[in-house]
Amino acid sequence: MSAAFTPSPAMPYAEVIGDPIAHSKSPAIHNHWLGQLGLDATYRAQHVTPDQLGDYLATRRHDPDWRGCNVTMPHKQAIIPLLDRMEIGAELVGAVNTVTRRHNGALIGSNTDVEGFLEPLEAELGETHYFRMARIIGTGGAARAIIAGLADRGFTLVVAGRDTAKAQALLDAIDPDGEHHVAPLEHFAQPTDFPFDDREGCCDLVVNASPLGMRGQPPLAFDLSHVPPRSIVYDIVTDPRETPLLAAAREQGFRTIDGLAMLIGQAATAFERFFGKAPPRSDGDVALRAILTS
């Protein structure tokens, strides 16, 4: 089955795998950093269907030049039983987005989505708050990582999705002792007259962790009357970078974070694991963002 995969490039390399995979921005990110550092290595996309996943890993396990892979849908959970070990963070999230190969061929699963999501929030999270609350839209793989990361940082969560039972199951699996809540997706589509206070001393987030609002997907119906004062509105969608949710929130004076922040942040952690060096980011990712949005 190895003939189904692109041959090894005779130099250190890593990949991103998924089905589909042509849309992935990961090769642009990693190859930009490799070029900046002058490393003799490459990173590429590899199309792997669900029925090829086992053969793909069996082939790469014995390739000494293969440093590992990033994992996208639909493999983030299906890959788990095929690995030799999972790091604690990936076990908590219940999903793997990065696989690295040890010298003995052992395959280790990790999840860098949590670190990538939290990276642009670190200044706020380093402060002391009276209360932390996040409203999260979505119940998929990215939402799992976000729920785990925010629960670990002391947030009370409200998770909204089409299937409230799935939302509750996520909370029960990730933080069963937390005082969290679920809501139907349409709850946030309707205006509210809830009298928020000014929330000074609190940390409030609104996170779109769903594909709603992505190019080619239905829009996210979210009424901004549900956003408390001083909130940060964070949309992990990367195409378009400026989603309708972010544009509307910025117009009303809220601080916003786009999906490229999480994408670049999680890639930075994976890059260091693959290639043994931290990526160059002294320009605040300005050059990289220009590449990704050109």
Score class of each variant (00 low, 15 high):
2 S>A: 15
282 S>W: 04
147 I>H: 04
266 Q>T: 01
33 W>N: 04
117 F>P: 01
77 Q>N: 03
255 R>F: 00
267 A>Y: 02
35 G>P: 05
25 K>H: 09
185 L>A: 06
283 D>R: 08
12 P>C: 09
247 A>K: 15
75 H>S: 12
43 Y>W: 12
110 S>K: 06
111 N>E: 01
220 L>V: 00
2 S>Y: 05
225 S>K: 13
58 A>P: 04
146 I>N: 11
67 R>F: 08
80 I>G: 14
16 V>M: 02
202 C>W: 08
191 P>L: 11
88 I>H: 14
89 G>I: 04
90 A>Q: 06
117 F>A: 01
18 G>Q: 05
209 A>T: 00
157 L>T: 09
259 G>V: 00
37 L>V: 04
113 D>E: 08
91 E>H: 12
214 M>S: 10
100 T>H: 06
48 V>N: 13
82 L>F: 07
238 T>N: 06
113 D>C: 09
230 R>Y: 02
134 A>T: 01
3 A>D: 12
187 H>W: 06
254 F>T: 00
265 G>E: 00
172 D>S: 15
261 A>T: 00
171 L>A: 07
229 P>C: 10
25 K>E: 00
14 A>S: 12
153 R>F: 11
89 G>Y: 02
39 L>R: 08
66 W>E: 06
59 T>Y: 15
183 A>Y: 08
123 A>C: 07
64 P>L: 10
109 G>A: 02
147 I>C: 12
170 L>D: 09
93 V>H: 09
125 L>K: 05
29 I>C: 11
131 F>D: 11
164 T>S: 08
20 P>G: 06
137 I>H: 09
9 P>T: 02
135 R>I: 10
190 Q>E: 15
78 A>Y: 02
18 G>V: 02
44 R>M: 07
11 M>R: 15
147 I>E: 03
105 G>K: 09
81 P>W: 08
107 L>D: 05
105 G>M: 07
115 E>Y: 04
257 I>C: 02
65 D>F: 13
7 P>N: 11
266 Q>C: 05
132 R>C: 10
232 I>T: 06
112 T>N: 13
290 A>K: 14
70 N>G: 14
238 T>I: 06
243 T>N: 04
47 H>I: 01
162 R>Y: 06
161 G>Q: 09
264 I>P: 02
143 A>I: 01
199 R>C: 12
258 D>M: 02
112 T>K: 13
145 A>G: 12
283 D>A: 01
194 F>P: 03
154 G>H: 10
94 G>A: 12
250 R>A: 15
258 D>K: 07
216 G>F: 01
118 L>F: 02
151 A>E: 04
109 G>F: 01
44 R>N: 04
159 V>R: 05
260 L>P: 03
177 D>S: 15
276 G>R: 10
62 H>Y: 07
264 I>N: 03
77 Q>F: 05
282 S>R: 15
22 A>N: 08
28 A>G: 14
192 T>A: 13
259 G>F: 00
229 P>V: 05
223 D>M: 05
2 S>E: 14
153 R>Q: 14
125 L>Y: 13
38 G>K: 14
80 I>K: 10
84 D>C: 07
65 D>T: 10
262 M>V: 00
269 T>R: 14
237 V>A: 11
181 H>F: 14
124 E>N: 15
255 R>T: 11
294 S>Q: 15
241 R>K: 14
234 Y>M: 00
194 F>T: 08
161 G>W: 06
258 D>W: 12
196 F>D: 02
